[in-house]
């Protein structure tokens, strides 16, 4: 990997898309119009990507929709068309709704902590005068994001152990022993224990991103505000927060769509238990397909996830379009 990046290019990337050259886009468009028809050979550059995506991404997606109308017996390979039965079963399945609810909790809490909490934290870190400390905090907060979810999940399994776990020992030492419990083994706490782990893992990532966005705000604005006697709290609300609101908006959308795709952390820590209390859509799909052999229902859950993420992605797209105009 090359570490010698041309400084100009580096600056351009870090400066963001301020100089989004709409002209280039338009220019290439008009050139295309001028020489239409003669460049089919150029498609060779795209062929590998299109082929791989078609085979492994788009075709399975289409097939999944078809599968959701079938019931099949894995032992003799028989497939029967059952119409909307799988969807009807899903709608009457309380665990499906609980899983969806857990995804919503996941999204909501992640927005509070990973987006807004991290924004505040990033502003605090960036307000430190010493560049070395800023680096230390940003760097160390990020470490959990670099370790795999499996490792984090196994680690927190030990932290949540009822008798010997770090959390309960800590609570007992604080004299709060009455709150100690089997965090992953209780139906009303399991999903929140998983979400908490996920915040631990992910907040450093958001802090890093917000730091980058905050660094793009011209320093003069802060200096001017300071000269006017504006305190740090007001500086945050009147300057930092509004100026990074594009990043905030995008982070909200990215976080929500991530929350509806959650799988690993739940699988590693609880497999959706106890008594399916911590199932999310992803693990419930896995469970339907690979534990109870009901591939038709699994496909129907897949369609549900697809519809939800598609709507969120559209929102993201609309949002970034709007932003492009603003910039």
């Amino acid at each position: 990997m090359s570490t010698q990046a041309p400084e100009a290019a580096q600056a351009r990337v870090l400066a963001g898309r301020k100089v989004e050259q709409a002209g280039v886009l338009r220019g290439s468009g008009s050139r295309r119009a001028r020489r239409r028809g003669a460049q089919v050979a150029g498609l060779v550059w795209l062929a590998p990507a299109l082929f791989v995506l078609a085979v492994f991404v788009y075709w399975p997606l289409i097939e999944n929709v078809a599968f959701s109308f079938l019931k099949w017996n894995i032992y003799n390979g028989e497939q029967t068309f059952v119409g909307l039965d799988n969807y009807a079963n899903l709608a009457s399945d309380p665990v499906f709704w609980r899983a969806l609810g857990n995804n919503v909790w996941y999204a909501g809490l992640s927005i509070v902590f990973q987006v807004f909490g991290s924004l505040v934290l990033a502003a605090i870190v960036e307000s430190l005068r010493n560049e070395r400390w800023r680096k230390v905090f940003r760097g160390i907060y990020f470490i959990p994001s670099a370790i795999s979810l499996t490792v984090a999940g196994l680690l927190f399994y030990f932290i949540y152990q009822p008798q010997t776990g770090l959390l309960n020992v800590f609570l007992q030492n604080l004299g709060l022993g009455q709150f100690s419990q089997a965090w992953l083994g209780r139906e009303n706490t399991a999903i929140f224990a998983v979400i908490a782990m996920s915040q631990w893992q992910g907040f450093g990532y958001s802090v890093l991103l917000f730091s980058v966005a905050l660094q793009r705000i011209p320093q003069e604005l802060y200096e001017a505000a300071q000269l006017d006697g504006v305190g740090p709290v007001r500086r945050f609300f009147s300057l930092s927060a509004p100026l990074v609101r594009e990043m905030t908006g995008l982070m909200v959308i990215v976080t929500i769509s991530g929350a509806f795709q959650v799988f690993n952390e739940v699988m590693v820590m609880t497999s959706g238990g106890p008594n399916n209390a911590s199932q999310v859509l992803g693990t419930w799909l896995y469970h339907a397909g690979f534990v109870t052999n009901d591939f038709g229902s699994a496909a129907a859950i897949g369609v549900a996830i697809f519809v939800i993420t598609l709507v969120l992605a559209m929102a993201q797209l609309a949002y970034s379009r709007k932003r492009r105009v603003e910039w």
Binding site: Q161, P162, Q163, Q181, A182, W183, L184, R186
Partner: peptide, 14 residues
């Protein structure tokens, strides 16, 4: 059992 109704949080290896 030692953990009673908390036993769902304990692995059998423990």
């Amino acid at each position: 059992t030692g953990d009673g109704s908390n036993s769902n949080g304990v692995a059998y290896t423990t």
